[in-house]
Design a protein around this nucleic acid. Structure first.
Length: 113
DNA sequence: CCAGTGACGGCTA
DNA sequence: TTAGCCGCCACTG
């Protein structure tokens, strides 16, 4: 197998996990990275989401950083879309920040396993 | 080829 | 406790 294909596998893997995030739930880049074995490389997860933006339809708005902050909202079609969608799913967002992030947090290494 | 940046996270002061 | 720095990996200039 080609090594270049491996990089795509990582991207596909990220998309798969993000798509598995239940509605009204959120997760962090580090959690996904850890689940994929790229522990410590949470930035790569974020980079994967950018590459997947319009090409791959995934609930990227359910992915936030470890403090529950909508750091990637600026990369959406409209910065308001991220918070808008989260609230539409029942996730309360205050000042670009997810409320009850601890309760809504969905850990793939624990929930998905 | 080298340096800077970035949807992050963890550690140290 | 809060604030700041470094580390990981890939891409752009």
């Amino acid at each position: 197998m080609s090594e270049s294909k491996k990089k795509e596998n990582f991207f596909e893997d990220v998309y798969a996990v993000v798509r598995l995030i239940p509605e009204g739930r959120v997760t962090s880049y580090g959690a996904i990275a850890s689940y994929l074995g790229a522990k410590g490389s949470a930035r790569m997860v974020g980079w994967a989401l950018i590459a997947s933006h319009p090409a791959t339809q995934i609930p990227a708005h359910r992915v936030v950083n470890r403090v529950g902050m909508l750091t990637g909202k600026q990369h959406f079609d409209e910065p308001n879309a991220m918070q808008q969608r989260l609230e539409a799913e029942g996730v309360r967002v205050e000042n670009e920040q997810v409320m009850d992030f601890d309760k809504l947090f969905w850990d793939p290494t624990k929930e998905l396993l």
